[in-house]
């Protein structure tokens, strides 16, 4: 029984690792953080945590590509696409937040993150460039 439980945990850990490994969290190189706890990352992308540790403002950006966006939401934010939309409608129509900027073009998206202080986003691990910093989530 114990062996089965250990195998199950290993398989689940591999599965989660694979799901998250496809997408990485990236930010502007000026952001002081090098790693971030998963719960804090959720709060950041839900607009509940708006300041980095140096008290500068966090600026969220997302991709319009539905597959990549849904994978990110599932892997890191633990929300479905419809829950994400509903959450941000609540934020926007109560004045509690400004909606994250969306990008169609990956090149423009990476350039924006590289040039805009405090910006955080996500991208397919294979597309990350040296102009942005990868934030480790742990």
């Amino acid at each position: 029984m114990k062996k089965i439980a250990i195998c199950f945990i290993i398989v689940m850990a591999l599965f989660v690792g694979i799901a998250s490994a496809d997408t990485v969290i990236i930010c502007n190189p000026g952001v002081q953080e090098t790693e971030i706890p998963p719960k804090e990352l959720q709060k950041i992308f839900l607009g509940k945590m708006t300041k980095w540790s140096d008290n500068s403002r966090i600026n969220i950006v997302v991709l319009k590509d539905p597959d990549q966006h849904k994978l990110f939401l599932k892997s890191y934010i633990h929300r479905t696409y419809s829950q994400w939309k509903s959450h941000w409608k609540k934020m926007v129509f109560t004045g509690k937040g400004v909606k994250p900027k969306q990008f169609d073009d990956t090149g423009a998206y990476l350039a924006y993150i590289a040039s805009t202080p405090g910006t955080v986003g996500y991208i397919d691990a294979g597309l990350a460039k040296d102009t942005v910093k990868i934030l480790n989530v742990k």
């Binding site: 509903s86 959450h87 409608k89 609540k90 129509f93 109560t94 004045g95 509690k96």
Partner: peptide
Amino acid sequence: KMKTPYGLYNQSRDIDAAR
């Protein structure tokens, strides 16, 4: 003038698309 925090849905009660 702010939306009053009360319960799970009071602040967003007028936003039909959010529920």
